[in-house]
Nucleic acid binder design. Sequence first.
DNA 1: CAGGGATACGACTACCTGCG
DNA 2: CGCAGGTAGTCGTATCCCTG
Length: 328
Amino acid sequence: MQRVYYKQNRIKQLRAFCYAAQSRSMSRAAQQMFLSQPSISLLVQSLEKELGSRLFERHGPRIALTNEGRNLLELALPLVEGFESLPEAFRERCNNLVTGNLNIAAGESTTLYLLPGFVNRFSQLYPHIPVTLHNASGVDGLALLRSGTADFAVGPILQIPEDILFTPLFSYEPVLITPLGHPLADRERVTLRDILPYPLIMPPRQMSTRGVIDIVFQQHNLDYTLKMEAGGWEVIKRYVEMGLGISIVTSICLTGGEKLARISLRTYFPGRSYGLIQRRGKVNSPAARKFIELMGPDRVTEAGAAGPRGRAPGRPRRDLAARPRTSL
DNA sequence: CAGGGATACGACTACCTGCG
DNA sequence: CGCAGGTAGTCGTATCCCTG
């Protein structure tokens, strides 16, 4: 008769299952749990046997979650993460102290313009907690989130996958920037046609912002003059300040210290929402919860149960949109 | 053929039970 | 109560087997 393994060791079964599901490999799950591959295989099999469901489809060396497996992962992941963060949560409750470390995934503009104030405040409040900013946006940022390397991500998001929760926090508007004294500098409003006589300094073509600008001009059957391409908002602002051209940027990069005139182009270009990007159902570490609290005091709830929006002081405008907007 | 999951089997350990 | 033997659970190694 076949032996029944791992009786009454549900959390171990679930850890093995979650690690295997996340890494799509029993061997890697074994490394994470400091066990051998057969042990993980047996743990998963015992779980399948007890639940009476196949959790993985096995194709030789490849494993993939079944529908039942995906359902179980949604249920099990918060339990496993909650179990693993128990010591930190316990210390926090006993001593009212936040411990651990904080990993945030964010793109360059978010790291440069949006996060510094929050990171500074966090470091003052919790100087003993090391903060790591992972320079990763888009799919790279999501990968860090899914692997658990990042506690959460901050930034805009183009399409929101099913397993991801996006909470918009700040919105930024498209802005025309010109050197001081430029013929357009004193205008309250400008049309796309007004821009045409002046050459533009633009981000490279692969940047999403550039794509949007090109599309909008095309939609109006207009052709702008390209003066130069430059990577990075700081570089573009510098060259506009020098009088080499004008540019269209997202207001996130304007800190107020620039010697530039700025005119809103909201009429023509979409705004951009920056917000909190979390994995659905993830239990945040105490440190992550505290940072999210700083970004929006009413957002301390776990992913999947975000509360109502508030308004915070400071330069970035709180996003007033009720629904997550797919930004461009 | 290589990589990786599945299986067989044995070692180790904890716990239970019976006996002195 | 303490010890010895039995039993069950866990995990490792070796090896098989399947798929790309």
